[in-house]
Amino acid sequence: MKASNPFPPGRRRPAPPALVLVAHGSRDPRALTTVRTLAERVRELRPRLPVHLGHIELNEPLLPDTLAALGDADAVLVPLLLTRGYHVKRDIPELAAASPARTRVADPLGAHPLLVETLYARLVEAGWDTGTDDAGRPADAVVLAAAGSRDPESAADTRRTARLLADRLGVPVVPAYASAATPTVRTAVRALTARGHHRVAVASCFTAPGRFATQCAEQAPWLASAPLGAHEAMARLVLHRYDRALAIPAATAA
């Protein structure tokens, strides 16, 4: 027996809840270009999904304006942030609660295998040798450069990403920070060099180009990867966070 069609001819399937990419914002114009490109990649992967962009500060559209334009529609906010910190725990939920839209806030992007896939791809683009086995890398190591936060959960997320990347690369990976936490990238590089690692790469654990990403890359003694950017794995990770947020019952999410 053929199942009945819940959407009769002429009636379109209702649109899913909107996905709102929440970027931090930056004075570096490359950051805005990057997050816009990432939004386009998400749309390409899921064409029927309404995808919007909102910033916490510094760039337009600001998140309150994006949410106001949605009216009372359903929306899932996906932070383009890599750890649990103040923006994820306070700023974004408070802005969401003040809007007329019916919102859920997804988890930040990291730590996740898709994030590690992007970090690995960016290192390879920068010149990381994929043809050498683990035994042939005694001099190699990586500093995972992140923004930094005073929140201990943020540091825990970065350490977990470092462990996942170390498993992927087969070399030591040490987390380091641009601000608000220690060690700094320079300190981490010196510590690895003292341990006999004379080829130390810096992996840029930043969503988009900006001041912190540039400063960390400049401290690389060997090679430095580009920020995560609009890699396809990042677009897939955004959709994964969106789907996970929708899978949680509304009362639990609230």
Rank of each mutant, 00 (worst) to 15 (best):
A68W: 00
L169D: 11
A145P: 07
T118S: 11
M1F: 09
G127C: 07
A176E: 01
D72A: 15
A139E: 14
S26F: 09
H231P: 05
T103S: 14
R241D: 02
A233F: 10
G85Y: 03
Q215I: 00
V174E: 15
T207Y: 00
A135L: 11
P16Q: 12
T182G: 13
V116M: 03
V88P: 11
G131K: 12
A217D: 04
A191E: 15
A126I: 02
P249F: 05
R102T: 09
D140E: 15
L192D: 00
T83V: 13
L21S: 06
R30C: 08
I92M: 07
P172R: 04
R199M: 03
A101V: 04
A3E: 13
P50E: 07
T187A: 15
A181V: 06
R195D: 13
H24C: 09
T187K: 12
L114N: 02
R236H: 13
R211G: 03
L82K: 03
M1A: 14
T130C: 06
I248S: 00
T214S: 14
P29H: 12
N5K: 11
A139G: 12
T83Q: 12
P50Y: 03
L21N: 11
G71L: 10
A203W: 07
T207K: 04
D91T: 07
H52E: 14
P113D: 01
R36Q: 15
D133Y: 08
G54N: 03
P8Q: 08
V238P: 00
V185S: 05
A135F: 11
A75P: 09
L45R: 14
H55M: 14
P249N: 02
R46G: 02
L82F: 08
H24K: 03
V51E: 13
E94Q: 14
A235H: 02
G25N: 09
V174Y: 12
V143G: 06
A141S: 09
A176L: 04
P100N: 06
R137Q: 10
L21M: 13
A176M: 04
R122D: 08
G136H: 10
V174P: 05
R195E: 15
A101C: 09
A230V: 08
R36I: 12
G25Q: 07
